[in-house]
Design a protein around this nucleic acid. Structure first.
Lengths: 145, 145
DNA sequence: TTGCGTGCAAACGCTTTGCATATTA
DNA sequence: TAATATGCAAAGCGTTTGCACGCAA
């Protein structure tokens, strides 16, 4: 025992991360955090649920959704909307953009240095810039020629 | 009679547009096209359905969805994914980006000249660039201060 | 006429909700 | 112990599907 699992953040690190964001570290939240924050990755609620199910962790569907919403609100993860039927939760908080592979359904990170957003229209007074998403869609085989 | 309704494209123009894209101009498709292409706008399936319902046009839900999917496939409209629970169909085919107002749920166009996407990672062989979406999220009142 | 399009309602899949139980601080 | 979180199952909501009928060419 004691060897670290690359797919699972150590418990104490997960707990520390929750504390940082003023979230009380319940058992289930810690389990979910261990999965999400094991590395930079993009997971859907469904994927997280099944990763948890593969282990002893029995966390209910409702709790997974509640927790993901909470994490997104508090800023631990970033919601990425790509597929109308599925949200991705991005554990990489560094500003970056995404390449979405339509054939595999996977997301790939893109260094924001490669993208310049300049000179946006002025925002209406009292409104806040919540974020800029750049999503590059990449598809399977080239159709026709 | 004869005066043009700014919310409705004339029938003959709608039919012409469908012909351009090799889509047979059925009654329902023409009605849907008249609504969508009356001007540049972003409509959800639900909105289109209710705009049609306000008029005599009785077009079923399934037909609206079928038709929107068809239009998107054929390139008459562009699908924009913003809200996981809702697709928008954009009748503006000119390349452009979007500001999404989270409070009103509305989309606003952004001139692509304001955004530079440079120097993207090389695409894997055999893959095609399907499109680049830039979505700028703008929220209600500034929270805290 | 003959295939394609349409309408209806039921099915689907992801997400949320209601409420009783259990856990946290 | 007072507040918050969890689990379960049912409800919600946008979208898709199956199938019989109807229209376009």
């Amino acid at each position: 025992m004691g060897q670290s699992n690359p797919n699972l953040l150590p418990v104490d690190e997960a707990r520390a991360r929750l504390r940082e964001y003023a979230i009380s570290p319940t058992e289930q939240r810690v389990e979910i955090a261990r999965v999400i924050f094991a590395r930079h990755q993009h997971l859907s609620a469904e994927q997280i649920l099944s990763l948890l199910a593969q282990r002893a962790s029995r966390v209910s569907k409702a709790t997974v959704y509640n927790t993901l919403n909470l994490f997104a609100e508090k800023g631990l993860v970033r919601e990425v909307v790509i597929d109308p039927a599925k949200l991705f939760y991005d554990s990489n908080l560094n500003p970056h953009h995404h390449i979405f592979h339509t054939d595999t359904g996977e997301l790939e990170d893109v260094d924001p240095a490669r993208v310049d957003i300049s000179n946006l229209p002025a925002l209406p007074a009292g409104k806040e810039l919540l974020g800029v998403d750049v999503i590059i869609r990449v598809g399977g085989e080239r159709r026709s020629r």
